[in-house]
Design a protein around this nucleic acid. Sequence first.
DNA 1: AAGTGGTCTAGACCACGGG
DNA 2: CCGTGGTCTAGACCACTTC
Lengths: 238, 238
Amino acid sequence: MKENKFISIYEQLVDKIKRGDWRPNTKLPSENELVEQYQTSRETIRKALNLLSQNGHIQKMKGKGSFVLDVSRFDFPVSGLVSFKEVAEKLGHTSTTIVKEFELVKADQDLCTQLGATKKDLIWKVVRAREIDGEKIILDKDFFHKKYVPHLTKDICKGSIYEYLEKDLGLKISFAKKEISVDELTDEDKCYLDLKDYEHIVVVRNYVYLEDASLFQYTESRHRLDKFRFVDFARRGI
Amino acid sequence: MKENKFISIYEQLVDKIKRGDWRPNTKLPSENELVEQYQTSRETIRKALNLLSQNGHIQKMKGKGSFVLDVSRFDFPVSGLVSFKEVAEKLGHTSTTIVKEFELVKADQDLCTQLGATKKDLIWKVVRAREIDGEKIILDKDFFHKKYVPHLTKDICKGSIYEYLEKDLGLKISFAKKEISVDELTDEDKCYLDLKDYEHIVVVRNYVYLEDASLFQYTESRHRLDKFRFVDFARRGI
DNA sequence: AAGTGGTCTAGACCACGGG
DNA sequence: CCGTGGTCTAGACCACTTC
């Protein structure tokens, strides 16, 4: 497995931090020292350090040095989002997926706007309920362009569609837009989920784009109010 | 105003895209051509292009080139979050801020954990209701360490505390952690907001860190369910 | 003055895409 | 094959912090 040098160095540095070789709030070796240690150029070291910084592991300070951040304060994975399902699985709760709908449909008006499709396009529609500790609390509705995903089975949907797309089909996701809002319940929600007597539901709409900037997937993830949690870690950019 | 070369080039390129000199889905000049045009080195051009990519303006494809993305599909500012207040103001709705509480308090147990403070620390507590089109729909609770913000007035709180901290005090924010969840109403919510008959409220908790990685601000932004909206745009990283 | 990270340069080689 | 973006190098100068 060939890997870029700066990524390899980045991973080695993350390891050192995680193992505690470098404690929080202490200073890392200077860039020039790291150049010596890893027998590479300064720009390569800097790429690795920038990765560490972007991912919340260190804080760089001009004139002073790079310092290890106390990640224990960021109680969960320092970047991206954490869905309740992921948290539940990390904490060892049982989690099952029930495929409620699985079919190939023609794009209707709504889907056309969401997916940027035309009326003749064929779209995979997958509706799955997520049950955690015996309660069905998340409803995931996925829509894919068939032209990007020619083959799909119910069995794949029981597992991780995401893994199938990335690992088996080799589709490369380049960016995604997320929208979070709170909507009123639909009949579908009431039918497929255990909702207690809540009248609203948290909706996460996800628009996923491929490397060539084409929109290929629209996902709607509907979470019961009390079980919703979203974490976001952001560094300041320009 | 002295500026880095790669940032200056980045801004010129953004301008060209926004003005339509380069249309969506067309190819940008190659990196080597840009090196010629801007009389600089390739690494500098690459830094500028990476900024464009991170901010969702272009898509780089190995072996092919850099392509202008159709940002009109990302209906709102392509990065970061968009609160209802910001959207409302963009659309020209009236928006006022009412300072409900403004005081210097000793950190209680709850604040100690949220702000990483000790019991002796003095903390600014500011509670503000946001009224949009005549309805009070957002309650912002802000807490700052006094040691970072020695002086604060009610007048500042009526405007933008954020601007005061960054522009006037020169505090440099380096990163922030956000947590979104849905909570039950508190008496405070009921007292300060126009809540119709909703029983829940969307809570955005914001932990803000300075350049030296010290936690200096904790903000709780409480949004009426029907007026909450959060947008997030993310590129894939390592 | 010495050490730190931030920027910039000029040049090299690579992997990928398309003719 | 050539042009593309991705990585890597060695060296330079700057701005900032600390002594």
